[in-house]
Amino acid sequence: MIDALEWVLGALIVITCFLSAIYSFRSRRTSDGRMRGLYTSRMNISMGLMLILIASILLIIFTGSSVKIVVCALFYLLGLFNLFAGVRNHSHFARLLR
């Protein structure tokens, strides 16, 4: 059961990393400021999810230590901040595009 969860989390990490890179390239290539903001917000959402998934897989794979808990907590907080900022910016730039 744990092995299957590790594989699923690993696959989700790879997918979110790929999406983050795609949106980063798109935001750098576009000249329209509204589309750049939309792609950047999607990149932040992908990176936030990726950091949360990395922290989750670290908690599952390795045994408990205080350093691991601190690192995982930092990854969770940074991921939640990126996710929150990305969702907030996405709603703002989506309204601008209408």
Rank of each mutant, 00 (worst) to 15 (best):
residue 89 N to C: 11
residue 17 C to F: 11
residue 83 L to T: 03
residue 78 L to S: 11
residue 79 G to W: 07
residue 65 S to V: 00
residue 31 S to A: 12
residue 83 L to C: 06
residue 27 S to T: 12
residue 79 G to K: 06
residue 3 D to Y: 11
residue 4 A to I: 05
residue 1 M to L: 05
residue 42 R to G: 10
residue 34 R to L: 08
residue 94 A to W: 00
residue 34 R to Q: 15
residue 13 I to K: 05
residue 24 S to I: 09
residue 3 D to I: 04
residue 43 M to F: 08
residue 68 K to H: 02
residue 96 L to P: 12
residue 19 L to V: 14
residue 5 L to S: 04
residue 85 A to F: 05
residue 33 G to F: 08
residue 90 H to M: 11
residue 52 I to T: 09
residue 46 S to Q: 10
residue 94 A to D: 08
residue 88 R to E: 08
residue 46 S to F: 05
residue 14 V to I: 13
residue 44 N to L: 14
residue 79 G to E: 05
residue 50 M to H: 12
residue 36 R to A: 14
residue 34 R to E: 15
residue 66 S to D: 02
residue 58 L to N: 12
residue 11 A to R: 01
residue 37 G to I: 05
residue 69 I to H: 02
residue 8 V to G: 03
residue 3 D to N: 06
residue 25 F to P: 00
residue 53 L to T: 01
residue 27 S to H: 07
residue 51 L to Q: 09
residue 27 S to F: 13
residue 75 F to N: 03
residue 42 R to F: 13
residue 87 V to F: 09
residue 15 I to V: 10
residue 37 G to L: 01
residue 95 R to I: 06
residue 86 G to N: 02
residue 80 L to S: 15
residue 77 L to E: 07
residue 7 W to P: 00
residue 18 F to A: 15
residue 94 A to K: 09
residue 4 A to G: 07
residue 82 N to W: 07
residue 8 V to F: 15
residue 7 W to T: 03
residue 57 I to S: 06
residue 44 N to S: 14
residue 95 R to N: 12
residue 96 L to R: 09
residue 27 S to Q: 12
residue 96 L to H: 11
residue 26 R to Y: 08
residue 75 F to T: 00
residue 67 V to Q: 03
residue 64 G to R: 05
residue 2 I to M: 07
residue 73 A to M: 04
residue 62 F to A: 02
residue 86 G to K: 01
residue 94 A to H: 09
residue 86 G to T: 06
residue 36 R to K: 13
residue 40 T to F: 07
residue 69 I to C: 02
residue 36 R to V: 09
